[in-house]
């Protein structure tokens, strides 16, 4: 198995509405895969199916080599997840959040302690170990949130619009963290609607109305669409959208 994620005609319908329409793609291990699309294009629904939060209507899919219908427990053990909200416990300290999620993923106390030190060093937050999350600035919260989502060294980490509402400098730093995680072999599956961020990905897919309209590296996409930036690529695809 060299693919971290595979899908084949994966579909989700809510009544008459088809949120995700027969999408098929593969994500290689260690890849940074950008999952783009306008709001309402079906990104979050697709991601939720892969994380085991929603069961698909039809189609096939595997995550970390496990079937998304039958082995969602195994999938859950091998992925990390960070949502649009920062989703840390604000009334707990940085270290307490790490200890909690380490515990949830079944790490023992020793592993949790050494990993906490390591993460705090990487975040340059050693002095803020016991600071409550609510008193941290939002850029830092987001970095802590990411560190917590990969605390248990998952095979794949899903980031659902992780940089929403953060300033450009903080976003840049955040992407450095993503690269660092990818270097360690963690596959990164990230949704975003900032097109400059799409340029940082190894490959991107663009969803329009529940379908994947384009999938390639940013360079090749720009060539195909004869565009100078990913933003232009996205604009030319989004123009034909009905749902957004």
């Amino acid at each position: 198995m060299n693919s971290a994620i595979t899908t084949e005609n994966l579909t989700k319908q809510f009544g008459d509405f088809t949120a995700v329409d027969r999408i098929s793609f593969e994500v290689a291990k260690g890849e940074i895969f950008g999952f783009l699309g306008a709001n309402g294009a079906g990104k979050t629904t697709a991601m939720r199916m892969l994380c085991g939060l929603l069961s698909p209507t039809s189609g096939k899919g595997t995550v970390a080599g496990f079937d998304i219908y039958k082995q969602s427990d195994n999938i859950k053990r091998n992925i990390g997840y960070m949502s649009q909200k920062f989703s840390l416990y604000e009334d707990l300290s940085v270290a307490e959040n790490m200890r909690l999620f380490g515990g949830i993923y079944g790490m023992n106390s020793k592993a949790i302690a050494s990993k906490t030190d390591e993460s705090l060093r990487e975040l340059e937050l050693t002095n803020d170990r016991n600071t409550r999350v609510k008193s941290l600035p939002s850029g830092i919260k987001q970095k802590v949130s990411f560190a917590v989502s990969i605390f248990h060294t998952p095979e794949i980490v899903f980031l659902d619009e992780p940089t929403g509402g953060v300033d450009p400098i903080a976003r840049r730093k955040f992407w450095e963290m993503i690269y660092h995680a990818a270097e360690k072999g963690i596959t990164v599956f990230v949704t975003t609607h900032y097109m400059d961020e799409a340029e940082y990905c190894n490959r991107v897919s663009i969803m329009v109305d529940g379908k994947i309209d384009a999938l390639d590296s940013p360079e090749k996409l720009k060539n195909t669409f004869m565009a100078s930036s990913m933003d232009e690529v996205f604009q030319s695809l989004a123009r034909k959208a009905k749902n957004s």
Binding site: Y81, K85, S87
Partner: peptide, 13 residues
């Protein structure tokens, strides 16, 4: 409301 429930549901718990 805070979105932490989603994180818990994605976890193996």
């Amino acid at each position: 409301e805070q979105g932490t429930m989603e994180i818990l549901l994605v976890s193996p718990v």
